[in-house]
Design a protein around this nucleic acid. Sequence first.
DNA 1: ACATAATCGAGACGGTACGTCCCGTCTTGTT
DNA 2: AACAAGACGGGACGTACCGTCTCGATTATGT
Lengths: 207, 207, 207, 207
Amino acid sequence: MKTQQTAEGAARSAGRPRSEKADRSIIEATLELLGEGIGVSELSIESIASRAGVGKTTIYRRWSNKVDLVVDALATLKPPIPLPQGGTVRDDLVTYLRVIQEEASHQRTRCIMNIAMSDSERHPRLAERFRELTVEPRREVVAAVLRRGIETGELRADLDIDVALALLSGAVIWLTKWSRSGDSDADLPERIVDEALKGFRPRPDEP
Amino acid sequence: MKTQQTAEGAARSAGRPRSEKADRSIIEATLELLGEGIGVSELSIESIASRAGVGKTTIYRRWSNKVDLVVDALATLKPPIPLPQGGTVRDDLVTYLRVIQEEASHQRTRCIMNIAMSDSERHPRLAERFRELTVEPRREVVAAVLRRGIETGELRADLDIDVALALLSGAVIWLTKWSRSGDSDADLPERIVDEALKGFRPRPDEP
Amino acid sequence: MKTQQTAEGAARSAGRPRSEKADRSIIEATLELLGEGIGVSELSIESIASRAGVGKTTIYRRWSNKVDLVVDALATLKPPIPLPQGGTVRDDLVTYLRVIQEEASHQRTRCIMNIAMSDSERHPRLAERFRELTVEPRREVVAAVLRRGIETGELRADLDIDVALALLSGAVIWLTKWSRSGDSDADLPERIVDEALKGFRPRPDEP
Amino acid sequence: MKTQQTAEGAARSAGRPRSEKADRSIIEATLELLGEGIGVSELSIESIASRAGVGKTTIYRRWSNKVDLVVDALATLKPPIPLPQGGTVRDDLVTYLRVIQEEASHQRTRCIMNIAMSDSERHPRLAERFRELTVEPRREVVAAVLRRGIETGELRADLDIDVALALLSGAVIWLTKWSRSGDSDADLPERIVDEALKGFRPRPDEP
DNA sequence: ACATAATCGAGACGGTACGTCCCGTCTTGTT
DNA sequence: AACAAGACGGGACGTACCGTCTCGATTATGT
């Protein structure tokens, strides 16, 4: 994603090579600032340079614009294992939602989530990257759980996996963001999964 | 929300009263700019003043703060009838989701939704206002539909209304934002409602 | 000089008459501010209004611009007895220069002199007024002294009165403003008058 | 006089050095504007920046203060050789006064003279600088002429040089500013010098 | 070893927007 | 009417960053 990066395999050109230390400290400074709640718009190159102990030129030489830098910075974040599984479909889903919920309670993660959510409309590449790095891997994990559930007969054979996924993931985001009371969050994953599994309509066999 | 606004019922203060025309043109200019995809951070008071044909002072006299202005501007937006109802629970929910989906396809609405979503973490008052003006009214409408469904026996008696609501609303947002393909959006409301109503698990009576 | 003043002799028009108290307090506030060293450019109508306890409108209704007001304000200043005479020409001139010198040592007079000197190029009407009110009367006094000196034979019959006047008055201003040392100012009037009377060239009869 | 100027002999500070071209164009723009009759108070930093094709920052980086800038700008003005001499005392003085008179007829010089005269009370540093750059050098020239006159016997041995100087210089300023008629200016230098040399009193040997 | 050359930190450059102050005009209700 | 109060559109203030551009100093490589 570095727009002006020297080609990897090319013969090392003459002159002083770029400092990897600078690379790292720039990325780290960027993540720190984002993690402190500073949005992409408020994030200034000058503040990054100052925090990283680096000249502005050193940043602009590597990234032609701020969003590119943010994209690269987010890319270095390893999705911190959102995928434990192996039990019943219900247990796997609850575990998964609990991971998401737990992430959202961390300052840094929440800020970065927020950036991904918020600045994505105005910076399509950011959205694309975020989808690629975070959304898709997680979607795949849950989709696998759901597919396994269908195979084992735990779930309906004609379940619309995309929609099921949206119901689960959307609900977490929605409740995290707009829940009326912050209190009953403890068993939220269970409640969501149970409602989703059962459906809204009464079942004749469950009085 | 105007920070320096004269109390409503108080005796008219001395001097020339503030121009309501200026009020309106400032709000309108703000909404126009937001509707053109300019984010809260990029939104400059000077551009608002210029577009509204107004001095900067006239804005600062009313709002001490850009966010306050945006909050007031959003407050003037009437939620454009999100509440059709009367048929079966399924029909009402589908209609409701369709309204939301339709809104999201309009440039202006989408920009403003985006602002509400994105800048809310950094500007709590914005979030609060958005919840109050948009989220809560809609939540109430859907909650009413669900309660009626429970009464008529269309829905389970022990349905967790908050969670049900989150499942439905969250799914729409999620799919609008992260859907892999933009193509199959046409029958999205039906698919979501049906999956939610049926639940993920197979029903013995529906082979 | 009041540009929008109602004609003196005209039938008193209807409505509330202009407050003479306001007139006075505006003029007084103006002179106070000028006397405090505020120049015409720095002098703001707002500060005058505030100091006079008057609305800005009340000032603009009387004077269409700031210079007009200053002109009128200066016009109310009576030249404080610049004309003592009766003795020898030398004594009269020394007395006169001493008055000028004494004036220049007063804060308020010096500020106003300064205004007259400084802003006159940029505001011709101010210069004109100052000449009319201050320069000409004084010139006339000194000219009278000089003419009397010629008559009595104390001065040369072919003395160029304009130039003589310029030499005397100019010297005072020059020395007040640019004198290298502020110390020997006590007998300045005598020194100036004596040099001017004697001329620079040696006299055969005064060895 | 530049408030934040790097010490001359000091080691070159880090970073890009200040542009001398910017220095020059700022000074030149300032002088142009002053020469067009704009006073120090009316002179806006923004207009200087715009005319000089320079950012406001570039001005503020060099001068913390408008007056400091004007002082430096005036300092670049070389007094355009006011000192021709060699003939009789009378000829030298007439020539000198003629130079001053001629200067006063030029738009730019008159404006700048005016600034020096007018804003000097309010801006002491401006007065000081003007005295140092313009008044003193000229005073010295005339003083030299007078001293030579005393040596050659053309002038009285006990002539008060300071006062003589004030009489001559003051008279020019006075007449330039307050002369009743602008017509008879042509032989003004001669008239002033002759009156000053002869003195006001009649000489027994000149009937 | 040493010239070549790309990089480094630093900071000046022309700009844009900030939020404040005051301009001279205008619009209220009161006198 | 004239008054005080004060809002109006506008323009300049001095500051903070923007993204670009020079500087002298540093650090590799290819003779």
